[in-house]
Write a protein that binds this DNA or RNA. Structure first.
Lengths: 221, 221
DNA sequence: GATTTATGCGAATGATCATTCTCAATTTAT
DNA sequence: ATAAATTGAGAATGATCATTCGCATAAATC
């Protein structure tokens, strides 16, 4: 007994679930699948989770699920892309305006906070492990990282040009190091280990200051 | 046609492969299996690699392989423990003697160099991802990390007591941050991405100095 | 030399895997 | 109203999975 509930024409406009056009409903189903798949992947890993488990989690038959994704690999790729994109957004928003070190610290803390609250650390660890052997996943990671890298690079290069900072090394070294640092913080979720946010910020600020060496000529307070 | 080559009694003492007692031969087989399994796990992940693939890699039948390990899980645990132990050794050896910052930087660089040369980054990423959902693996990671943590803690606390350094925050914050940093560097293998070792050391030294805040009262040069 | 034990092979096992197929119900288009 | 297209269920598919079994051979012990 299928469940194609409600909405026979215009009457459904009064439903709490708003108007569901063909494509809207499809997008909702895709979202439901990705959400359930993420749950399964966090629980068992990309390879460990089975399509049957994902089907159970969504409440959908295999035949139905395959109407939305052509393969398990496609689901993994979609989840990876969505996760990396959301993760990159945390950075891109916070690199603009304000003091260089402040921006750096704010971005780092926002990232730490997001990772802690979303509970996405296991998913990130899984994605990163998969990226070491799966070219499609590696590509997705590199793509989203390139955006972050570009933002940070222009952000920092601008500060260097304006004489606000005098980095302890070239940006081609500092940026990969900071990315690595961020990834380490991401998979470790220090707040979950009992590390205090404020003490954490003190250490991160010290690190940012040491690496960027602000000259005191900053335009911001 | 089994392959129980050579060594019928004492004659084997002249073999190039030295004397192989019962337990010695067994240890060699175990080592061969772990080596082959590691290859497979790096290639396909813990869940992605099959026992048949491991058998092919070792050149051994399933029946024979199961004489040495009771399950796939047992192999994964053995590999994890060996990898974490070897990784921890890199640190424990280098925390003693010399200037505090020098020791810190030396340990970090040794770790980076080891990760780069051993090519163990993918295995580490896999182990870390698995540790998020497998309690046995998580335990193994925490155990080996505890040794490193203890070494560093006593090392740094001693320096603090002697007035050599004045950390920018308490050790309970600095240590987790440094561990996270190290893990980030481990999975990223920056030298493989073209980052120069010497420039890398400059940045790491700046970070170590900033976090530890040496007072100049160091006993070493 | 005979017996016990350790080690090996390779086929077999039942479970589970990703995916496909058939068909029914529903929605949209005509 | 009717036809076409979409979406669903659920059984079936063949492959592959981790693991086991029976049996043969080699080594160790007696």
């Amino acid at each position: 007994m299928p469940v194609f509930h409600s909405s026979a024409g215009e009457a459904a406009l009064l439903d709490t679930e708003a108007a569901t056009s063909r494509t809207e409903r499809r997008d909702q189903q895709v979202a439901r699948i990705l959400d359930a798949a993420k749950t399964c992947f966090v629980r068992s890993g990309f390879q460990g989770a089975s399509m049957q488990q994902i089907c159970s989690e969504v409440g959908m038959s295999p035949g139905a699920l395959y109407r939305y994704f052509p393969s398990k690999e496609a689901i993994i790729e979609a989840i990876t892309e969505a996760d990396r994109r959301r993760d990159a957004e945390i950075f891109s928003v916070l690199t603009l305006g304000g003091d260089v070190v402040d921006g750096f610290v704010a971005a780092a803390m926002a990232h730490i906070r997001y990772m802690h609250e979303s509970g996405n650390a296991p998913l990130f660890a899984e994605i990163r492990a998969e990226s070491m052997r799966n070219d499609a996943i590696d590509f997705a990671c590199k793509m989203s990282m390139k955006d972050v890298d570009d933002s940070f690079r222009s952000f920092l290069r601008g500060a260097v040009d304006r004489g606000e900072i005098d980095p302890c090394a070239d940006l081609d070294t500092i940026l990969p190091v900071m990315v690595a640092f961020g990834e380490g913080l991401a998979i470790n979720d220090l707040p979950a280990q009992g590390v205090d946010f404020e003490r954490l910020e003190v250490v991160i600020r010290a690190i940012a200051t040491a690496v960027l060496r602000p000259t005191g000529r900053s335009t911001a307070s």
